[in-house]
Amino acid sequence: MHASLTVRAALVSLLLLGLGLGAWHLAVARSGPAVKMDPEYAKLMGATATQGKSAMPGPGEVGAKIWQHLRDPFYDKGTNDKGIGIQLAYSIARVMTGYLLAVAVAVPVGFLIGMSPLMSQALDPFIQVMKPISPLAWMPLALYTIKDSSISAIFVIFICSVWPMLINTAFGVASVRKEWLNVAKTLEMNPVRTAFRVILPAAAPTILTGMRISIGIAWLVIVAAEMLVGGTGIGYFVWNEWNNLSITNVITAILFIGVVGMLLDQVMAYLQRLISYAD
């Protein structure tokens, strides 16, 4: 008898996790030669130099660090020592602000492009040029014009999330089935009613796909953007811990970034399921 696919897949996942953690543990456990030195000097050098311990933390240390962060995620002990929860909250707030602004712009403009072949052709060269620009390339320009690092980061999120939504909305609107539009016409529906009752629900799955791609990109970009602008946020936290040479915290932050990214994606996937329709 075979267990269900889900159970078997979960077992394989756990096995791979165990193997990975084991390999990690073995890789960092090897100790190099200990160097004899003056005890005062040894205090300054730390365990890596004096006992030959690896500078890379093992899974146990990272686990303990994660637990420590989870127990007290929202402490605030000054500029360079805030709980990981606060840092993540800053990042999420920036991402959501930039992202929602992008939705507010991309969906109506995408609608216009999708409805009007003229606007579609007229705006196409701009979109084609703007789309491949790395969002971080905008950063100096944003800093110079906006003169506020936090708003500049939001602008960078806006500019990187706008394109997939714009293109998907335009595509979704342009490919609404002619027969549905014909139904709307024979029902003498006015353009606004047609847009909200026919075109929007018809294009919604495609629009949501664009929104899901965008939130993924926004979460990728925020880390890099915060490394540049500094101050707060998970990207700044990673860079700060690198400056502190706390590899344990860097690994912890990497894991948290992954988990939050996954959660954001799952929320979008849930919304996608809500508005999708079987044809």
């Binding site: 014909n182 024979t186 026919v198 629900p201």
Partner: peptide, 19 residues
């Protein structure tokens, strides 16, 4: 132009699948 006085039954039902 189209009119509510001339209703159409389409070849492919043309129902809105989300409704």
């Amino acid at each position: 132009g189209p009119s509510l006085d001339r209703a159409v039954i389409f070849q492919g039902h043309a129902l809105m699948p989300w409704l």
